[in-house]
């Protein structure tokens, strides 16, 4: 007997539970979305998502202060001792 087959009665139980818990909702589209689609065509291209996420304030606020301090030390070190760049590159 496979995993999913073993689980079938339980699946029915949870299906019933979910149906009872999640409220009914509108399922049919009641208006034409073409005007909205045309607006989408007029919008400028969106920035690449990963860039937006990487440099969002929320993401930057997650970086601990000592990482910022380490980055500052690294930048100062590279500025003072440019010949150390190959060493840093080797370690990264």
């Amino acid at each position: 007997m496979t995993e999913p087959e073993m689980n079938e009665p339980e699946q029915k139980k949870f299906a019933e539970l979910l149906k009872q818990s999640l409220s009914p909702m509108k399922r049919e589209l009641d208006r034409d979305l073409w005007p909205k689609m045309l607006q989408r065509f007029d919008q400028p291209p969106r920035p690449r998502k990963w860039l937006a996420v990487l440099f969002s304030p929320a993401a930057l606020s997650l970086v601990p202060w000592f990482d910022w301090a380490l980055l500052a030390v690294l930048i100062v070190g590279v500025c003072l001792f440019p010949r150390s760049i190959p060493v840093w590159l080797y370690h990264f």
Partner: peptide, 19 residues
């Protein structure tokens, strides 16, 4: 678009459950 918008909407709303 006009032919398939309702069908695409119906499919998506079943997944995200927010019209």
């Amino acid at each position: 678009f006009r032919q398939f918008q309702a069908e695409v909407f119906r499919w998506i709303v079943r997944i995200v459950r927010d019209p």
